[in-house]
């Protein structure tokens, strides 16, 4: 068995090294005075300073946050409703079509989804901007929310809902007072996922945005195409720091809940 544990440990270490070395380098070089990656010019917060002076970038941060907050909200409402329908109505006409439409966007190449949504907006003569990006992100996000909430609903004890109904609660009342509160952790996770997807998306936003609605990934992308600038390292580090704090908090809460049990 010793041989086995050595193999397992090396698989683990190689996998994590592959995942984290590039990220660590981005963080390290955000504090490098020099522009060159192979030269360490000393510790500096110069690129962070330049970042704060870059107004275009800051505008796009605000834009992205607006889009992410709104689209995640829409995605959560639609996705939760879809999950409830799929989990609680076992048979209905079009069930297969419905669930196919939930799963397909999860793997569909984004260029196809983006192109088709844009062509829809053009056909309907909808001006492109904030709302069209929100719709695009909500459509993708709702599918992820549905999968998460549906998994949770499948695992729930149905007898609680049945008890509520026996005691005279209407199906709708049961849904809002029993089912949804029980599914709340997965609904929150779904919101967080939809929010992150929206904040991160470049392809869908590029297709569905209009003049004056440039999101952060679009701004970052155009800077990347101009060449490597350490400002990108700085903003990446800030974003990853934010993600790390949220994930650590989630991990900590989960830990305490498990410990309490």
């Amino acid at each position: 068995m010793r041989m086995g544990s050595v193999l397992r440990l090396s698989g683990l270490l190689f996998g994590f090294a592959f995942l984290y070395v590039p990220i660590a380098l981005v963080i390290l070089y955000s504090f490098n005075e020099s522009r060159l990656v192979t030269v360490w010019g000393g510790f500096s917060t110069r690129w962070y300073g330049e970042l704060l002076a870059n107004e275009q970038l800051l505008d796009s941060v605000v834009m992205s946050l607006h889009v992410a907050l709104s689209s995640a909200l829409l995605a959560t409402v639609l996705g939760t409703a879809a999950a409830v329908s799929l989990a609680r109505r076992k048979r209905f006409t079009g069930r297969l079509a419905f669930s196919s439409m939930i799963f397909a966007p999860l793997v569909m190449p984004e260029v196809i989804t983006g192109l088709s949504l844009l062509l829809l907006f053009v056909a309907l003569d909808v001006p492109r901007g904030f709302w069209t990006i929100v719709i695009a992100h909500a459509t993708l996000g709702m599918c992820f929310v549905t999968v998460l909430v549906h998994a949770r609903l499948q695992g729930l004890d149905r007898s609680l809902e049945e008890a509520a109904m026996d005691l005279g609660a209407s199906p709708l009342r049961t849904l809002f007072s029993v089912t949804l509160p029980l599914a709340l952790p997965s609904i929150c996770a779904g919101y967080a996922l939809a929010f992150t997807l929206s904040l991160d998306d470049f392809v869908l936003a590029s297709f569905t945005s209009g003049p004056g609605s440039t999101t952060l990934p679009m701004r970052i992308y155009s800077q990347m195409r101009l060449g490597v600038t350490p400002q990108i390292n700085a903003i990446s580090t800030l974003m990853m720091g934010g993600v790390a704090i949220v994930l650590l908090a989630a991990w900590f809460i989960e830990r305490r809940k498990t410990a309490a049990r």
Binding site: L25, V26, D200, P217, I220, V228, M239, M240, L247
Partner: peptide, 18 residues
């Protein structure tokens, strides 16, 4: 193992340029 998925896709690709 899945935490990188929560960070920006663009940045993870960009990291490889350097």
């Amino acid at each position: 193992a899945v935490a990188p998925f929560w960070t920006s896709f663009l940045i993870r690709v960009y990291a490889w340029i350097a």
